[in-house]
Amino acid sequence: MASSLLRTLIPFDIYGGMKLTGKYFGKVLLQSNRGTKRTHIVVEYPETPVTLMPRYRGRLQMIKDEQGEIKCVCCLACEKICPTQVITIEKGKKEGRKTPYPTRYDFEMERCIFCEFCVESCGFDSIILNHQFELAAYNREDFSHGTEGVFQNMYDLTPVGHYSVASEE
């Protein structure tokens, strides 16, 4: 009875919370914002690069072999497996190449959900999801990626800096 009255009058519970928050305030205050040892959890993103895990799923990219040839043989597995149907492939032939060659490989990023099913289904390791995550753009066309014509950007990273402040410099 007496102790409960005392606990009502003197707010020990509030003191505990204040002590915890005060402790964190002191810790962050006494350390520098950009030191090696720090309590705060902020990543100052554009200035400090973000670390990504090796399996990070970014944008779809086609990779070439040592001769600079596209590895894709138009098996259409990725086109079939894609849940949102963002991949369109046209089968064709190229001189001096035995296997089929994609005359058109279109990837519409604005509908892509980055599930990596396409990479998983690919039996020839010809596509990967790279580590690029700065994918915002101002024009709809910038989201369309392809191998032919204007959009010859399936092989490279999207030019960073076109969209991101990390490129200033």
């Binding site: 895990m53 399996r55 990070y56 799923r57 959900i113 980055f114 990596e116 099913f117 998983e120 999801l129």
Partner: peptide, 24 residues
């Protein structure tokens, strides 16, 4: 989660019959 399956929220982590890959 990102280390395991490459995404933080929309994970698509498992496959029918097991897992796509073992733990990294």
């Amino acid at each position: 989660f990102e280390a395991f399956c490459g995404a933080r929220l929309t994970t698509t982590a498992f496959r029918i019959g097991g897992l796509r890959e073992d733990i990294p």
